[in-house]
Simulated scan of single mutants.
Amino acid sequence: MSNESMSFKGLRLLVVDDDLDTRTLLTFLFELDGAEILTAASAAEALEIISFFKPDILISDICLPDEDGYSLLVKIRNIEAKRGRKIPAIALTASAYDEDRKRASLAGYDIYRCKPIDLDELASVVASLAGLEQYV
């Protein structure tokens, strides 16, 4: 990320990606700036984590080994609706097709970003979704 210091202290993120390097990179960068992050390599792991962890933001890959990120988000949104919550969600994927972007929007993703990740832009998007206006 840029030399500008951001503070994500107190922010809780759930990162779902089958790529270990992506999970490690995002964990390192956001934890360095104070966020609490849990990661999952599959939709099943993410649903298990959601049972006890209440993230402020979901960052999820679309192509997961057990089910896609579209159906994962629908399940998470249903769980969170019962809790009276709605988690902002970022789709982070290698697919740059317009039809995938539209499908992600229809599934309920607030933001759609393609890999490779621009870390400064992702941090700005997370800050915006979290209402950390001083960093937008």
Rank of each mutant, 00 (worst) to 15 (best):
M1C: 08
S2C: 02
N3G: 15
N3D: 15
S5M: 13
S5H: 13
S5T: 14
M6E: 03
S7H: 07
F8T: 03
F8S: 01
F8M: 06
G10P: 05
L13Q: 05
L13H: 09
L14T: 05
V16W: 04
D17C: 12
D19C: 10
L20I: 11
T22Q: 03
T22N: 12
R23I: 02
R23A: 01
L25F: 07
T27C: 08
F30G: 08
E31Q: 12
E31M: 11
L32M: 11
L32Q: 15
D33S: 12
D33A: 10
D33G: 00
D33C: 09
E36K: 12
I37W: 01
A40Q: 08
A40T: 00
A41P: 06
A41E: 15
A41H: 07
A43E: 00
A44L: 13
A44W: 01
E45G: 10
A46P: 02
E48Y: 00
I49S: 07
I49D: 00
I49G: 05
I50G: 00
I50S: 06
S51I: 01
S51F: 07
S51W: 08
F52Q: 11
K54N: 11
D56I: 03
D56V: 00
I57E: 01
I59G: 01
I59V: 15
I59P: 09
I59D: 11
S60M: 07
D61H: 04
I62D: 05
C63P: 00
L64W: 02
E67Y: 09
E67C: 12
E67S: 14
G69F: 05
Y70H: 09
Y70V: 07
S71Q: 15
S71E: 14
L72I: 04
L73A: 03
V74Q: 15
K75P: 00
K75E: 11
I76V: 15
N78I: 06
N78G: 02
I79Q: 09
E80D: 11
R83S: 11
G84P: 08
G84I: 04
G84M: 10
R85A: 12
R85D: 02
R85Q: 12
R85P: 00
I87V: 14
P88E: 11
I90A: 06
I90H: 07
I90E: 04
I90S: 06
A91G: 03
A91E: 08
L92I: 09
L92W: 09
T93N: 02
A94T: 14
A96M: 07
A96Y: 06
Y97E: 06
D98C: 01
E99Q: 06
D100Q: 04
R101P: 05
K102Q: 15
R103S: 10
R103K: 15
S105N: 14
L106P: 05
L106V: 12
Y109N: 01
Y109M: 03
D110Y: 02
C114G: 03
K115G: 01
K115C: 04
L119Q: 09
E121I: 13
E121Y: 09
E121V: 12
E121N: 11
E121T: 12
L122F: 09
V126I: 15
A127P: 02
A127K: 04
S128L: 12
L129W: 06
L129I: 08
A130V: 10
A130D: 05
A130F: 13
A130S: 15
G131I: 09
L132P: 03
E133Y: 10
Q134G: 03
Q134Y: 14
Y135P: 00
V136P: 06
